[in-house]
Simulated scan of single mutants.
Amino acid sequence: MATSGSKVVIYAALAGNLLIAATKFGASFYTGSSAMLSEAIHSLVDSGNQGLLLYGIKRSSRPADDKHPFGYGMELYFWAFVVAILIFAVGAGVSIYEGVLKIVEPHPISNPIVNYVVLGAAIVFEGVAWSLALKEFAATKGRRGWLETVRASKDPTLFTVLFEDSAAMAGLIVALVGIALSQALDMPWLDGAASVAIGFILAGTAALLAYECKGLLIGEAADDRLTDTVARLVRNERGVESLNEMRSMHLGPADVLLALSLDFRDGLDIGQVETTIFRLEKRIKSQFPEVRRVFIEAQSKGDHRRMIQD
């Protein structure tokens, strides 16, 4: 399931987006700004998305049962993918459509000062939510680069909220520039152009989110640090001759399934093999609490090689 820190980030983003969406809708209806309407829709979609992420966290935390023996952890990945689809279909689609209409039939913005005040306040609110998301995400980064951290992350709630807030900040700046230029140059169509640009920002964000969530949905292996350490633990186990094969998969942000094929030393009786398996599993889980299930197969190296070849 997601961490408590990621929940705080989602709640902060949800509260900010609901407040901002209501203000933007009021400003867009009052002034007739296409870019402001796109931003209002953007904030409303973001609010719904954060609600879906919270729903996904709750659903993924359910215990395993007979129909889902490995639990519901991957349901969080599904809802994160749904979020990506909504950003693309609703946020990007409506923004581009509204912008094209304004470009085809431009009309001046009335009372633009209202838009400036609302956008300025929105930048402040979004900036607070964005800084919280960035701080939470940076805590998981370590020495890795930002893109590398996104690729390695198994908690979609963190990078989804960060991407959404980053897109929101970019969209606010584009809307502010578009409205200002349309007023300063007396070119109302620039307001529509800003709306189209916001749509493309959302489309790019959605595509990146969908790509990352797809990898999690179809099953990603545990990171190299975990698998390398497990391999070392196996090699150091006195009852094990060799590690034939290791497979791992994330069933959730903090739920790893681990399968090992081991060649045990000749001469061990069944009781000694069982003791060795217990000792090894205990060591793995004590060092990596996210490893919830370990399946160990006893198989000679030769038999394992022949099975692969067959």
Rank of each mutant, 00 (worst) to 15 (best):
residue 58 K to S: 15
residue 19 L to M: 05
residue 141 K to L: 11
residue 167 A to P: 08
residue 152 A to L: 11
residue 231 A to C: 07
residue 201 I to C: 05
residue 286 S to T: 12
residue 194 A to C: 08
residue 183 Q to M: 12
residue 8 V to G: 14
residue 56 G to R: 01
residue 192 G to P: 06
residue 235 R to W: 01
residue 79 W to M: 08
residue 2 A to L: 05
residue 4 S to F: 08
residue 18 L to K: 06
residue 255 D to S: 10
residue 102 K to D: 06
residue 200 F to Y: 08
residue 165 D to R: 02
residue 111 N to P: 13
residue 94 V to E: 05
residue 258 L to T: 02
residue 88 F to K: 01
residue 126 E to Y: 00
residue 187 M to G: 00
residue 147 L to N: 10
residue 246 M to I: 10
residue 212 E to G: 01
residue 54 L to Y: 00
residue 272 Q to H: 13
residue 147 L to C: 06
residue 238 R to H: 12
residue 176 L to T: 10
residue 64 A to C: 04
residue 261 S to N: 09
residue 274 E to Q: 11
residue 303 D to E: 15
residue 68 H to Q: 08
residue 60 S to D: 05
residue 306 R to V: 10
residue 271 G to P: 01
residue 148 E to I: 14
residue 23 T to W: 14
residue 31 T to K: 07
residue 68 H to K: 05
residue 244 N to Y: 01
residue 190 L to W: 00
residue 292 R to T: 15
residue 115 N to A: 10
residue 76 L to D: 06
residue 26 G to L: 12
residue 57 I to Y: 00
residue 31 T to M: 06
residue 282 K to H: 10
residue 152 A to W: 08
residue 52 L to R: 01
residue 175 A to L: 02
residue 36 M to R: 01
residue 296 I to K: 02
residue 19 L to E: 00
residue 114 V to F: 13
residue 145 G to K: 12
residue 102 K to T: 04
residue 235 R to K: 07
residue 206 A to D: 05
residue 256 V to G: 12
residue 120 G to L: 09
residue 249 M to T: 03
residue 213 C to S: 10
residue 2 A to V: 09
residue 179 I to T: 09
residue 162 L to D: 08
residue 59 R to W: 07
residue 203 A to I: 08
residue 257 L to Y: 07
residue 84 A to R: 04
residue 3 T to N: 03
residue 78 F to W: 11
residue 249 M to V: 13
residue 21 A to V: 11
residue 40 A to I: 01
residue 103 I to Y: 11
residue 23 T to Y: 10
residue 30 Y to V: 13
residue 65 D to S: 08
residue 255 D to F: 04
residue 55 Y to Q: 02
residue 120 G to R: 09
residue 228 D to V: 13
residue 51 G to W: 03
residue 112 P to C: 05
residue 60 S to L: 07
residue 242 S to M: 12
residue 104 V to W: 09
residue 191 D to V: 02
residue 256 V to L: 15
residue 299 Q to C: 15
residue 38 S to Y: 04
residue 205 T to D: 09
residue 292 R to G: 11
residue 310 D to E: 15
residue 90 V to Y: 00
residue 151 R to E: 11
residue 189 W to L: 12
residue 14 L to R: 04
residue 267 G to N: 11
residue 212 E to K: 08
residue 265 R to H: 07
residue 11 Y to S: 03
residue 84 A to H: 05
residue 106 P to I: 11
residue 227 T to F: 03
residue 11 Y to C: 04
residue 57 I to E: 03
residue 256 V to S: 04
residue 108 P to H: 04
residue 246 M to R: 03
residue 6 S to C: 05
residue 237 E to G: 00
residue 255 D to I: 05
residue 152 A to C: 03
residue 15 A to D: 01
residue 308 I to R: 14
residue 118 V to S: 01
residue 277 I to Q: 14
residue 194 A to D: 00
residue 93 G to N: 00
residue 189 W to P: 03
residue 284 I to Y: 02
residue 25 F to V: 09
residue 64 A to H: 10
residue 263 D to P: 03
residue 173 I to V: 14
residue 4 S to I: 12
residue 190 L to A: 07
residue 246 M to E: 09
residue 290 E to L: 11
residue 126 E to A: 11
residue 66 D to N: 07
residue 183 Q to R: 11
residue 64 A to G: 06
residue 134 L to A: 14
residue 40 A to K: 00
residue 220 E to W: 01
